[in-house]
Every structure is written in structure tokens, then in C-alpha cells.
Write a protein that binds this DNA or RNA. Sequence first.
DNA 1: CTGAAAGCGCTTACAG
DNA 2: CTGAAAGCGCTTACAG
Lengths: 355, 355
Amino acid sequence: MGRRTPHATLQMIADETGVTPSTVSRVLNSASEASARRWASAETINRIRAAAASHGYTPNPQAVGLRTQRSRLIGVIVPRLQDYVLATIYEGIDEAATEKGFATFVTNSLDDPQKRARATETLLSRRVEGMIFGDAQFDGEFLQGVAERGMKFVLVSRRARDFPSVTCDDHLGGRLVGEHLVSIGRRDVAILAGEPYASTGLDRTRGAIDALREAGVDVPPHRVVHGRFDAQGGREAAERILDSRPLPDAIFAANDFAAIGVMGALRDRKLSIPDDVALVGYNDTALAAELPTPLTTVRSPMHEIGRRGLEMLLDLLQGAEVEPLRLPPTLVVRESTVSAEASRSTGTDGSGPSV
Amino acid sequence: MGRRTPHATLQMIADETGVTPSTVSRVLNSASEASARRWASAETINRIRAAAASHGYTPNPQAVGLRTQRSRLIGVIVPRLQDYVLATIYEGIDEAATEKGFATFVTNSLDDPQKRARATETLLSRRVEGMIFGDAQFDGEFLQGVAERGMKFVLVSRRARDFPSVTCDDHLGGRLVGEHLVSIGRRDVAILAGEPYASTGLDRTRGAIDALREAGVDVPPHRVVHGRFDAQGGREAAERILDSRPLPDAIFAANDFAAIGVMGALRDRKLSIPDDVALVGYNDTALAAELPTPLTTVRSPMHEIGRRGLEMLLDLLQGAEVEPLRLPPTLVVRESTVSAEASRSTGTDGSGPSV
DNA sequence: CTGAAAGCGCTTACAG
DNA sequence: CTGAAAGCGCTTACAG
């Protein structure tokens, strides 16, 4: 069996300093010098700290957890970590968790109900204090069950019912896209709306439709197609759109990777971007600006969503009441909707953010 | 404070069944019916199991860990989870870990020595039994220190010194690219080699150079440029290459995302792929096949690298001797090196794998 | 102010 | 075969 790295214990520090473990614990757990002085003389405090430091003492989290009934562990479930958006959100979660002294476990659910349920059980059995779901289904049925079991959780990326959540204001993001497309004269917009159970795509779609309608542009139901938020899903959905006539003059793919798939489908059909079809994505992924045709997209604060999600969960664990949080997106105009020449003449640089 | 989800304890099951916790523990920890019979009568066993099931009993891992001195926790450090390649490798690690009853913690190091050191300490303080590094620097100095402290670890993706590792056979992958470029008549190849401290890019570059040299094609030093393995890094590196004359007739970007950046740089200069410049990536990322110009690339078994890495670590923890493992890559030819017309005439479908 | 003691939830040598 | 007891490493009410 793997020999353990020798970790110092409170007892060792106590023996070395000639005090009891109680005192060592109290001193080491004191936030300030002042509060430490309630437990020991200045000199003892120094000796204890020196001994702890020399051993690289660090309290055993299993022992602390067992004693205090707090694991300082958070469980995170995402559809898939391979997805840049969710990976970024998770980075935010983990960063904030580490700062607050928590550790996280992440797993994929692949949006599969069975896997989601199993993953949740595994996390509960690990005694997480709370959970963060990035894979909420819009109906919220599964989550209802989790709530009824008394487990606290926060949703990120996708919202559902009135459960605590931190999302991008996707409806607003959709509006920004609709307004932009109208402003560049597009009148026939097709939308790749993502999976029908994810609020992200649904809200973005609704926002775009609302903005377009207000400008007198109607989006008939057959212009809205569902599919996965990845390149392959985007290509397939685009092909369905492009197989029918007339062709739209703009496509809003509610996800950057789906938009890349659309690019492929357009190229196959020798359609040019943006002259034949303007293309807009969502999320302002690192790739968007670097694509052969730089992609107009909506920047969503992914990292921030993760951070805030973790913070909201900690508030919840402390018994606070929390409100769903919608963080504002910004439109980033690039050459997939406004050609380089046109953008030069209008003063847009084609890469910076602009509302 | 967040009220805990009530978890059943051994004591509760014992009370309910009229036996001692010792017996419950022994029965529940028996692998088979037969071995359970050593501790209790068939009827008692059934009663114990029924009680445990009805409470959804699951042993408290902190208590088990404290008692057995085994946390069943593994620490994983990657350069960045946002990177599709590392995210996929991590998915493999976590999948295998879950199967074996282990849980994992992941963190980013961003290839920053300070962050890496800090993350390692945090993981050690969480009492992980072993670690997996996906961010090894080629010199292996940091890792040497970790090894000297008695912590067992395995490297994935990148190798360093003779430390246990699971990687793609990157030298072979590079060779496949070199041979392919020669076979389609390219004689002036530029290479985006990635960061100079990562074995991945170094080995791929060396492999390509070796294959090209054997075919009589020399790659002078100025044709090898270093940079980050992402779209922006690829674009910047490509610009350095394309600013000098003569232009190369092929570019091997040792990473798919870097290759996407190269595509952008080529388009800016109105250079066509593959006619002016053939382009090859590495990893066969989900995007590669769906790009406007489908990308010729080398498929590496990312998920498998993760799985095998975890398995190797468990072997190590059991005291086994292990050998570094190199998993074989395959070349996938697409239109970025062989145009659709050409591939039609040669029978290549432009998307399936082929050596 | 500080020490001795209890106890978190387990597993497992030790008795009987 | 099975129970009682010890003990993993902590924290913290309880005494003094």
C-alpha cells in the first residue's frame, strides 16, 4: 500500500511545544494575534507557530470535518467539461471556492438524467455541503427532488423555476443580437436555439425574436431549429435551414461553437459571410475573434457566473435569502455581420466590444 | 449555518437491527454473501442490508478516511481546464477514478510555477493519496521535489525525465505529419512547436523534422517557432512565419487550436488552404472536422490517456513498478492538406481516419 | 486563562 | 463467531 506522506499532527506540535493539543488548536485557529493572546502568552504563541511552520503543519481535513460536521466540500455537475463555456464557469467556481477555503468535486452529466442522478448520489455520499448544477433542465423536476431532500444548491449558466441561479441575462443577449441584425438591414433571421430543455438557448431565442418583432421583423416557427451547442450540432441544424427556400439573410447561432458549424455548412454551399448570410454566435469564446471570419457574438461573463454562483451558494449555506442573478452581456461586432470594409468606414475595429 | 442533510450512521443501523456497529460494519464491508456469513446469520445479514438500504446508508468518507488513513482522493493539476485537450484528459481521469471508488480534485496551474506550487500544497493539505500532473515542465525540477517528499504521481499529456507518464506517442505523431507532407509534395515546412517547456510540442516537432529529413527535406531552425497552443498563439506565430520570405508551402501547427489561428492569419493574407499553404493540426479536436476548411490532424487518444494515467497511479499506490506509456496516434487527412477534388480522385473521403 | 475529556463515525485488533 | 474497546486527528463545551 502506498506509504503516506507524513503529515504532522496537533499532538506532535503540542509535544514539541510543551502545551496541550487544545492550546495548539486554539492558537492556530485564532484569526488574529490579539485573539490568540486569549489562549497563550506571546512567547508560547510564537513557539507554537514556529513548530507548526517547521513541520508544515496543516490540519487534517477529514478529522476537522468529522468533528465539526462541515466538510468544506462542494459538488459541481456540468453537462460536459469539454465544453469551453462550462469549463470556464467551473474555473470561476473553483477559483472562488479555493479563496473561501472550500474544495470542489466536478463531474459530467452529459445531460443524461441517469448520469445526473448517479453523480448527485456520489457527491452526496462524499458529504458535500452544497451543490452547483450547470446542467439544469428547464422543467426543474429533478432539482425539486434534490431540494426536498434538504440539499442546498445554486444553478449556473441555466436557470429553472425559481431556484437560486446565476446566469447571463440571456434574454437581453438575444435582444442585442436582434437589434443588431435589424440595424444592418437583415429581415429574415434563422435561429439555432440549442436543446429545448436549456434555458440558455430558449431565453436567447426569445430575446432575439422579441427585439425583431418590435422592429417589425417576424420570425416564423420554422426559422427556429433545435440542436446541440457544438460544431457538429450547429452544422446539422444549419443544413436543415439551408435546405429550405428562401435562404435566410442572417443566422443567429446561440452558441459560438454551433456558429462554427454553421460556417462550415455555409462554405459547403458557397454562401459568403456576411454578404449572403450574416452570422452571430454567443459567448465570445476565445476562438471567436481568431476565426478566419471573425465572429460577431455576445460576450457573457462566464468566469464571473462561476464565481458568483459559488458565492451565492455560500450565502445560502449561511442561511441567507438569495435572489436569482442575471449578469449583463455585451454585443461584440466583428466581420461575420459587418464586413471589414464596411466596419472600416463606420469606425468599428471589428474586434473590440461595442454595444 | 446550513443544516446538514441527515446521513444515517452505522450506529443507527445497528440500533435498528439489534446488533453492534462492529457487525454492521463487517457485514456491509463484505464483498460477497459468503464472506458476510462469517460475521452473521443469513437472516441478520438481510436485516442489516435492508436497514442500510432503507436509510440510504453510505459510510462517512471522512470517518473512514480518518480511521483507515486512506482518503481515496486524487489531486489533478492541469495547465488549464478551458483547454479542450486537458478537459478531455481530465474526463478520462475522473471517469476511471469514479469507477475505482476514488474522487478527484482538479485545478489549473496556468503553467505558472507559483500557482503550480500553491495548488500542489493545497492538494497535499487535502490529504490526496496521489497526484496527476498534466502540466509537467520538460526539465522536471519541480516534480523532482514532489517525488522527494514521497508523494506518488503520474504525468499525463506531457512527459518529463523518467517519471511515470502516459502520453500520446508524439514523436510518432510528428513523423506521420512529416511523411504526409512529403507525400503531397511539400518541401518547405514551418512548424508551430508550442511552448518550449512542453514535451508535447517538442516531441511532435522533432518527429516531423526527423521524417522530413529522411525524405530529404530540411527544416532550418528559423522554420520552428514557439508560442501558445491556442488560437491567438497560433495566429501570432503564423504571422511571424508569414512575414518572412519565402513563404512555406506547409505549416504544421502542433495543436488544432493553434491551427485555427493559423487559418485566420492565412486568410488575412489571402493565402489559400491547401493550394498556397497546406495546414496540419494535432489532436483531432471535435472542431477539426467541422471547420470551414476541415483540418488534417493527428488523432491522439486523449480520453484514454486520462484513464490510463489514473490506472497507472493506482498501480503505483499499490507499490507496483510502472513503465512510461506512449499511446499511438493516427493521421486523419482532410481538406486542409488535400483539396476536396484531389481527395475525391484518390478515394479519400476527407473525414475518416487513415494512416 | 488552560487542561482533561468527550465525541464526530468509522474499522479492527483483541478478548471472550 | 461476536461484542467491547481503542483510536484515527481534530474541536470545544466543561471544569478548575
